[in-house]
């Protein structure tokens, strides 16, 4: 079959709602775009372990410590199966990690902000995981089988994370005045980065018809952002916290909240590497990789010795 015919069959398959699987024919642009998106998602999971891991040793009680450990373990697991899913596109994990370490590959802008107090752990679960779920439930309906299946599982776990984050915030907001101040401060610092992490507004990020048609991209950034805002504002009201946006108001006609201007300059600075923690996050990953090199070499050497013994025996 020539390329034009294959492309036609590929697009027809996607239009019918069927999934594309690793051994199916796919256009190079589709493969490249998926590698970029999926590895960026995987990198976000493992870089995201750092700001949250930052508070495991200081969690305020044993129950919170256990929940946070379980959550960060989930994130590491997401990273692992997203790397595995990306490998089905013909690239291996070491190459993907090299792209992260050299700065060629990106990860979510949100993890370049610091976790300054315990309340930030609540804010991340509630806002960051909440925003991620909005994006990921859409992606679960995409066209690439391994990514969709990973996303279904990830979304289930993320909704637990989202609830535990909100539960932390609720306890703080209903706690002592000092605790409530911690919660409001965390919301003030994480609100704008959370709505920015869903990506540039549609006028700055035109979605190509092709990516939509190929079901790589399912919804526009602004549409996802609006859904996240509409879901989150009443949750803040319910626990008595204030969204740090004086222009935020409910549009009675649409039932949606309108928001004030987003500081996109800040977003693009963070993306470029100039956020508060970009250098630290990348350094932590590169250091872990370097310090672990001799461990991985030992494991490889040991496995080679054992398989040689098997051959002799």
């Amino acid at each position: 079959m020539d390329d034009a015919k294959q492309l036609e069959a590929f697009e027809a398959k996607i239009a019918s709602g069927a999934k594309i699987e690793p051994k199916d024919w796919m256009p190079e642009a589709y493969r490249k775009q998926l590698i970029r998106m999926m590895s960026q998602h995987a990198h976000s999971e493992i870089v995201g372990m750092l700001p949250e891991g930052n508070w495991i040793t200081r969690a305020p009680n044993l129950r919170r410590k256990a929940i946070l450990l379980a959550k960060v373990q989930d994130e590491a697991g997401h990273g692992l199966y997203l790397y595995s899913a990306t490998e089905t596109l013909g690239i291996d994990r070491s190459e993907l990690l090299a792209q992260l370490h050299t700065g060629k590959a990106k990860y979510s802008s949100i993890f370049n902000y610091p976790t300054l107090t315990w309340a930030d752990i609540g804010a991340i679960g509630w806002l960051v995981d909440g925003a991620a779920i909005m994006n990921q439930t859409a992606l679960a309906r995409g066209s690439y089988g391994p990514y969709c299946r990973a996303m279904v599982r990830i979304c289930k776990e993320e909704s637990f994370h989202n609830r535990q984050g909100y539960e932390i915030m609720m306890h703080l907001a209903q706690g002592t005045p000092e605790q409530k101040a911690l919660a409001q401060d965390a919301l003030n610092r994480w609100w704008w980065p959370s709505i920015m992490m869903l990506g540039p507004s549609d006028d700055q990020s035109p979605n190509s018809d092709q990516l939509m048609r190929w079901k790589v991209k399912m919804e526009s950034n602004d549409a996802i952002r609006q859904r996240f805002i509409d879901r989150t504002v009443p949750q803040a009201d319910f626990i008595g916290l204030t969204i740090p946006d004086k222009d935020m108001k409910l549009d009675e006609k649409t039932g949606s909240y309108t928001h004030g201007p987003i500081n996109w300059d800040e977003f693009f600075e963070v993306i470029k590497g100039n956020g508060p923690c970009n250098a630290n996050r990348l350094k932590a990953r590169v250091d872990a990789d370097k310090k672990g090199a001799w461990v991985r070499e030992a494991a490889t050497a040991y496995a080679a010795k054992r398989s040689k013994e098997k051959l002799v025996a």
Binding site: I46, L80, V295
Partner: peptide, 19 residues
């Protein structure tokens, strides 16, 4: 062990140590 979180030699070990 939890101090290793995010700094393990390989992702599989990060998961194991946290677990």
């Amino acid at each position: 062990l939890s101090e290793w979180c995010g700094h393990g030699p390989i992702l599989e070990e990060d998961i194991a140590l946290i677990n």
